[in-house]
Design a protein around this nucleic acid. Structure first.
Length: 528
RNA sequence: GCGCCCGUGGCUCAACUGGAUAGAGUAACGGACUUCGAAUCCGUUGGUUACAGGUUCGAAUCCUGUCGGGCGCACCA
């Protein structure tokens, strides 16, 4: 809808126009403060300019009313236009709220180390990334969802050693002392049991086998992560192994060197990232020749850019924000446009339990697992709640609140609106064809408002994706559900003269809710 | 100490990225079922948008400073 209005306005006004949804519907469907901007340029009163604009557009069939109020230009869409758009949407449900974008995007998210199960903080990044993925694809973007697997380095070695110790302690019954920073937890006990069955119990004492066991354990943990993610409808297209990247290190290093991006000091290779806005230079190859973690990220991003996507999105935990400038510096040294990489941070989730801060530690084994929470409240509630918070602000919630499964949870409120529509459709004696044949013209004012709101999904999706703020979708759905509930309470439908019309209107509302929820990875409920 | 993010009713969050009277949920209180699902709806109370300046037609939003909080400041990942 918005595009068509903008297209019309732009045919007369050659500049960027902001179309707003007025707070008060009596101001119309759309409004624009364009006269203020023009006033500055033309050095004339915005009120005069707005009045002139009224003359320009009031005759168009798209609008039933155009007026100037205090410098704002308020537009009211015509019934013909709204009826036509709604009928089209119902006849082409799969196309509803879609866009015409076509760019290719590589979206990397989660990328948690395969050293243990995902915790509640990872879930936030997963939900955020997957929601962006769904929104972007709906708009037409061709997006690849990728998981970068950190399967090299100390953390992985630590997983192997931790597993060996776990086996010695719990399978062989030996007296073992755990160093402080080793991994603990139920998943390790489980893994040890399976390892004992697969390799035999003696494996835990065989120092030569530790490498094999480590690799095996890493794969098992990754499988666990993938299946936990599947439980909240998050799926990846590609997985990239950090360990395999290092085969390409020499080649990438040569490019960095050739472009003056490195310097050798004290037998170490440094990335001269301070030249590109980083606080200081960074070691990328240690004295003994082993590349650092950053080296892996450099190869990874170089290969990403060689895969030639139009743009790239990374979703990182906020504790990695210090990494942004050094990775971008490396990308720039490698001859790529670092502005094509958009790094979004997913802020910490801090947990409370009975009002007290609840500290998590993967190594101490006191982690709130993502799957534990999913078991308690279900994927839908978890996804809706996480999606409804801006990703770059810290989020705090009480574990006990999450366990509640009542109306205070907004997903129930939205689902209830959808379910109510299904029920009333079943109660009605009218068939689908009779309903579809009805016209949406001549509706009451509040029905017209509901219709318009239901048809705004595309604008919301576009706004949410482009600003990377997925909570706009949940806000919209809560608002639409509220408008619907209110309307439902105020109006009787079955048996009235307008029954077919109103049911058609409800079909549009249901379509919008169902589509909106699907973009959040949630299947709308027909019954509560 | 330096860098990044943030500070909005008691609590959890919005505010179309500079626009009209700062909105929802929750909590508290009071109302609405003989009626398509009351898991709903309506109303009341609650705000100097941390504070102080500045920019302009216009600021929660941008700039400067102060105060407060989170995260980071590895040759760990």
């Amino acid at each position: 809808m918005k595009q068509r209005v903008l297209a019309l306005l732009n045919s007369e006004i050659k500049r960027d126009i902001v179309l707003e949804k007025p707070r008060d519907r009596s101001f119309g469907h759309f409004a624009t403060p364009i006269a203020f901007a023009m006033a500055k340029e033309l050095k004339r009163s915005p009120i005069d300019i707005a009045s002139e604009l009224v003359e320009l557009f009031s005759k168009d069939a798209m609008f039933t009313n155009v007026e100037a109020v205090k410098g704002y230009l308020n537009l009211k869409l015509s019934e013909d236009f709204l009826d036509e758009y709604a009928s089209w949407a119902l006849a082409n449900q799969d196309e509803f709220a879609k866009g015409n974008e076509s760019s290719t995007i590589l979206l990397e998210f989660v990328s948690a180390n395969p050293t243990g199960p995902l915790h509640i903080g990872h879930a936030r990044g997963a939900v955020y990334g997957d929601t962006l993925l769904r929104l972007g694809r709906h708009l037409g973007h061709q997006i690849t969802a990728e998981y970068y697997v950190n399967d090299a380095g100390n953390q992985i070695d630590l997983l192997g050693t931790s597993l060996m110790l776990e086996g010695q302690a719990n399978i062989l019954g030996l007296d073992v002392e755990y160093p402080e920073n080793y991994y603990r937890g139920d998943y390790l006990s489980e893994l040890a049991k399976i390892a004992a069955d697969t390799y035999g119990k003696e494996v835990f004492l065989d120092a030569k086998k530790i490498k094999d066991v480590t690799l095996w354990a890493k794969d098992e943990v990754l499988k666990m992560i993938v299946s936990d993610l599947a439980a909240i409808n998050v799926h990846f297209d590609t997985f990239v192994s950090e360990a395999e990247l290092y085969n390409d290190w020499d080649r990438v290093m040569d490019i960095l060197k050739a472009n003056g991006g490195t310097e050798e000091i004290d037998g170490k290779q440094w990335l001269k990232s301070s030249l590109k806005g980083d606080e200081k230079d960074r070691v990328i190859v240690r004295e003994d020749g082993r590349p650092t973690y950053l080296a892996g990220d450099i190869i990874y991003h170089h290969q990403k850019f060689e895969r030639k996507y139009d743009s790239y999105i990374n979703i990182w935990g906020a504790d990695h924000h210090g990494y942004i400038s050094r990775v971008k510096a490396a990308i720039s040294f490698l001859g790529h446009d670092e502005n094509k990489l958009d790094i979004q941070l997913s802020q910490m989730v801090s947990l409370l339990k009975d009002g007290e801060p609840f500290k998590m530690s993967k190594r101490a084994g006191t982690v709130i697992g993502m799957n534990d929470v999913v078991e308690e409240i279900g994927s839908d509630a978890l996804r809706f709640m996480f999606a409804s918070k801006k990703s770059d602000t810290a989020l705090e919630f009480d574990i006990n609140d999450l366990k509640k499964q009542d109306s205070s949870n907004p997903i129930f409120y939205v689902n209830y609106a959808h379910a109510r529509i299904q029920t009333i459709l079943e109660k009605s004696e009218l068939g689908r064809e009779e309903i579809m044949a009805a016209s949406l013209k001549g509706l009451s004012e509040d029905a017209d408002n509901l219709l318009f709101e239901a048809m705004l999904l595309n604008e919301v999706v576009e706004d949410a994706f482009n600003s990377r703020q997925v909570q706009k979708v949940t806000d919209y759905l809560k608002g639409l559900a509220s408008t619907y509930h209110k309307f439902y309470y105020d109006h009787k439908v079955i048996g009235t003269q307008d029954e077919a019309k109103l049911l058609k209107l409800f079909l549009v509302v249901a379509l919008s809710i169902k589509t909106g929820l699907s973009l959040l990875g949630i299947k709308a409920k027909d019954r509560m």
